[in-house]
């Protein structure tokens, strides 16, 4: 299962173009993609899902579609103005990501904000470093960094240089951990095959195993976690499947196993208890107790 958690979408995107992108993603091998909607700063009071309903893959057999998720990216400049109405957004989108624009916002996103993905616009120059400490704190907190390669493909030479500098810095700061690779493709030509992406990031200093993880396991963990938060019981427990009851055979085997198990257990316990008791009791006391027990038994008789 390969994931691409960022395919750029805006209300101006036509359905045909979106379909083209999606079929291309599918033919390149991505099984799950997320359509990304970048929100503008005064967020709507009661957001509704803006995405068009795509035709199910069964209705159009000649264009196989990947599994589509919905995602919102929030640009964040000033962490102080924190009226983001996150809970209302959580209900509408499958995934949330944050795009910090300043150092303060970046720090805040790394250390406190409860949003699983930090996505950066790497084609621009940042006036700050990626320091290992907040980055690693974010990774160990479960927040993932996202690098979008399409930004580099579409950028001018200056932007490309910025992208490479930022990407290598981020990879160095996190030592390649917790990085999601995605495309942010505005059209089908911004997509690349997974092997190409892995090679590209290998050239930039990310080991190929970690790059593969960035396409497979890490985005999957984010998606699963977020799904759990949304429809699991208190964000912790989710009923995946209920095993059917198999009354007769199941009971019998249970009984047998318990019957064979319990004596063993008891024996063990006894031995353990005996061992524990015997240690503090001295020989003389043991003898006394034995005698007392024998006397008691004979009296009873």
């Amino acid at each position: 299962m390969l994931y691409d958690l960022n395919i750029a979408w805006s209300p101006a995107t036509t359905t045909e173009r979106l379909l083209q992108t999606l079929t291309t993603a599918s033919s390149l091998g991505y099984a799950t993609v997320a359509l990304n909607h970048t929100l503008e700063l005064p967020f709507p009071a009661n957001p509704t899902t803006p995405f068009p309903s795509l035709p199910a893959s069964s209705s159009s057999p000649d264009s196989k579609l990947p599994h589509v998720l919905h995602r919102a990216t929030l640009p964040l400049a000033d962490p102080a103005a924190s009226n983001y109405r996150l809970p209302s957004l959580v209900g509408v989108y499958d995934l949330l990501a944050i795009r910090p624009l300043t150092e303060k916002a970046f720090q805040n996103a790394c250390l406190t904000l409860d949003i699983p993905i930090i996505s950066l616009d790497m084609a621009q120059h940042f006036p700050f470093y990626f320091r290992p400490k907040p980055c690693m704190a974010a990774v160990s907190r479960g927040v993932r960094f996202e690098i979008c390669y399409s930004q580099a493909l579409a950028a001018d030479p200056r932007g490309r240089a910025n992208f490479i500098s930022n990407a290598t810095n981020l990879i160095r700061a996190t030592r390649g951990r917790g990085i999601i690779l995605s495309s942010e493709a505005k059209n089908a030509f911004g997509l690349r095959a997974p092997a190409d992406v892995v090679n590209l990031f290998n050239v930039w200093g990310l080991q190929s195993e970690k790059a593969m993880e960035g396409l497979r396991t890490i985005p999957r963990s984010v998606v699963v976690n977020e799904g759990m938060k949304r429809d699991g019981f208190r964000g912790v427990i989710n009923i995946v499947q209920v095993v059917k009851k198999n009354p007769v055979e199941g009971d019998q085997t249970d009984d047998q196993s318990s019957a064979t198990d319990q004596p063993g257990k008891r024996k063990n316990q006894k031995r353990k208890n005996g061992g524990e008791d015997a240690q503090p009791i001295s020989k003389r006391e043991a003898k006394k107790m034995k005698l007392a027990a024998r006397a008691a038994a004979s009296e009873k008789k």
Binding site: L153, F189, L191, D196, N199
Partner: peptide, 25 residues
């Protein structure tokens, strides 16, 4: 790898008025 990454960055058929495309290794 150098050659491969260059192919990744190419985005159209290298002739006059070439169509946009993806080079996939």
């Amino acid at each position: 790898q150098l050659l491969w990454s260059a192919l990744t960055f190419m985005d159209r058929v290298p002739v006059k008025d070439g169509r946009p495309c993806i080079f996939r290794v």
